[in-house]
Amino acid sequence: MSKRSFSFWILPVAIAIHSITLWTISCGGVYGEEAAAVRVGPDPTAYKTCVDKGVNYLVTHQMPDGSFSPETGVGITALAVAALVRSGLTTHDPPVRAGLAYLEKQIQPDGGIYTPEGFYKNYETCIAMMCFQWADPERYKDVIARAEKFVKDIQWDESEDKNPSDYFYGGAGYGRSKRPDLSNTAFLIDALRAVGRGPDDPAIQKALIFVSRCQNLETEYNTTPFASKNPDGGFYYTCAAGGQSMAGQTPTGGLRSYGSMTYAGLKSLIYAGLTADDPRVQAAKRWIAQHYDLDSNPGLGQQGLYYYYHTFAKTMDALGEPFFVDAQGRRHDWRAELFEALAKRQREDGSWVNTADRWMEGDPNLVTAYALLALSYCRPTEIKPTGTGSTQSGGSARP
């Protein structure tokens, strides 16, 4: 047999053997043996180095009283301490102990955790609730219970003479006198979920009413005048008090959807118990698939980028899948991609900062806290192929 005829014969046989081998692996191995686990997410060594540098930046920039950027209120301290805890520090570590002690001093007689002269009572209390819960739930059990009552009391509902037909209903703002918005409402849902409240909690179900009305999707749950003007399935800042989107309006008077609020909206829908077959969830996922991006906050460019990264991570974790498929059919290892986006933006001293300084993202304490919180959902993990071709996560990002 000539060399040419031998090559002509052996090539298709080799391809066939390779194809059979791949098929065998995907089906669980020979005679039903379990397929090997596959790692998703970033390289473990690179991940640890990045997180350690961020943690080191925060602990070396903590004030003597345990606070971080205290001139801005309680929020950044609560975010920073929460980030340290989710990065592996515990109440045995001095930076966490000092931060918690500072937050304890901000507990008010009404149960809220905020600075009395500030305007962010709901926001600050919700973040502090999560921080206390993640750090030491038993020790702070009573503090958390009183804080929960506080944030529920300032939620817009019948106690503020609002009924379910009012666009304020179910939402949370920065405080009782502020109009509700999707960001604060999402933090409220996050906090309630963190302390163990489920979709059947009345406050979460009230919040779901508000969240649904901030979506650009006309349904039986959303008959606001904005829903039909830009029906792309994304979310915007608030439907209350005339409505507002930080991304502006469409030529027809609709409110533009944008990334951070769409991820916040989808996460809130999931936490409120909506499943994958709900039209609201489906529409939000379509918007995300069409605008999947880790170089910008879709619709806002670099503005609010690190808030977006944090919300992106929590939402992807809530979806519960190791990969996300975009509108072009591309499969994304979102943990690895988010890590890469953050790692390349980390400064030499371990911090992160946003040069598009809107919503206080010029403060490296705040932005480093956001980045570390986002990274806490990007931990390298393993998945194992199942008989149906779906995947299972090898671990949870939630403590």
Rank of each mutant, 00 (worst) to 15 (best):
T381L: 03
C27P: 09
F68H: 12
G248Q: 08
Q133C: 12
S376R: 04
I189D: 14
N56G: 09
T311M: 14
L89A: 07
L266T: 01
K152F: 02
A145G: 05
G253M: 09
Q106N: 09
L375D: 01
K48T: 15
G32H: 07
K149V: 10
N354W: 10
Y377M: 02
Y123A: 10
G304C: 15
I288A: 08
Q62S: 12
L79Q: 04
R347M: 01
V81W: 10
S351C: 06
K48P: 10
L319I: 02
M1E: 14
N122I: 07
I189T: 15
S177E: 15
S165A: 06
P298A: 03
I15E: 07
L255G: 03
G329L: 02
V55R: 02
K314M: 15
E138N: 14
G395I: 08
T224H: 07
G389N: 04
G389C: 10
P202T: 01
L269M: 08
Q155W: 13
T21K: 12
P399M: 00
D201C: 00
Y174G: 15
Y140V: 08
P225Q: 09
G75W: 14
L300F: 03
G301Y: 13
D136V: 06
N122L: 06
L269E: 02
F323D: 00
R398A: 10
P64S: 07
T185G: 05
C126T: 08
Q215F: 02
A276P: 04
D349F: 03
T250Q: 03
K314Y: 14
P42S: 07
E348A: 14
D357F: 04
V81Y: 05
G259F: 04
R379I: 00
D293E: 09
P95S: 12
Y114L: 03
D277I: 13
A194S: 13
G234A: 04
T115F: 15
P225M: 08
L294C: 07
Y263N: 03
Y221A: 12
A289D: 06
G299I: 02
A135P: 04
Y167G: 10
G196I: 13
Q106T: 08
L192C: 11
G243F: 10
Q215E: 00
G234H: 05
G73S: 09
P180V: 02
R213S: 12
H310L: 13
G362L: 01
T60S: 11
T125N: 11
R345Q: 15
P399H: 02
R193I: 03
F226Y: 13
K285M: 04
M360T: 14
V30H: 11
A98W: 03
A147Q: 02
A289T: 04
D333L: 00
F8E: 15
G362A: 00
Q106Y: 06
I113A: 03
A371D: 04
A374C: 09
C131H: 06
